[in-house]
């Protein structure tokens, strides 16, 4: 059965790119353009993995991740953070809220897909 992935980023180019590529690789994809819609989508579609941009307006990816981890329905979801911020403290904060992986922008779409596959394979075991 195809895994479901949620992509949350306020940049339409990144959303579209990831949606295209992930669909091409056989995943079912949902997109969100800010924190609140990401949460709503996560609760509705219960994806296996969420790709979250940190710097989203209204509610950052970190807040979304934290909320997902606190909610028992979504606590087991895999989370991959995507961001332009590379400070050590941000990375620590990302993992601190329970992210499974952390990818910096500019990113390689192929590499991102590989990481997603790796996480999902790990979880499936």
């Amino acid at each position: 059965m195809a895994a479901t992935v949620l992509v949350a980023d306020d940049d339409p180019d990144i959303r579209d790119l990831l949606e295209f590529k992930l669909t091409h690789c056989g995943y079912k994809v949902h997109v969100a353009e800010d924190g609140p819609s990401a949460l709503a989508a996560a609760l509705e579609y219960k994806p296996d993995l969420a790709v979250l941009d940190i710097m989203m307006p209204v509610m950052s990816g970190l807040d979304v991740a934290r909320t997902l981890r606190e909610n028992h329905e979504t606590a087991a979801m895999s989370i991959l953070m995507l961001t332009a911020r590379a400070q050590e403290s941000d990375v620590a904060r990302g993992f601190g809220v329970g992210a499974d992986d952390y990818v910096l922008k500019p990113f390689s779409p192929r590499e991102l897909i590989s990481r997603i596959e790796a996480i999902l394979t790990r979880v499936a075991r």
């Binding site: 710097m55 332009a84 911020r85 400070q87 403290s89 941000d90």
Partner: peptide, 8 residues
């Protein structure tokens, strides 16, 4: 602005 936002 992105530069500032991303600038620690």
């Amino acid at each position: 602005l992105e530069d500032i936002y991303a600038n620690p």
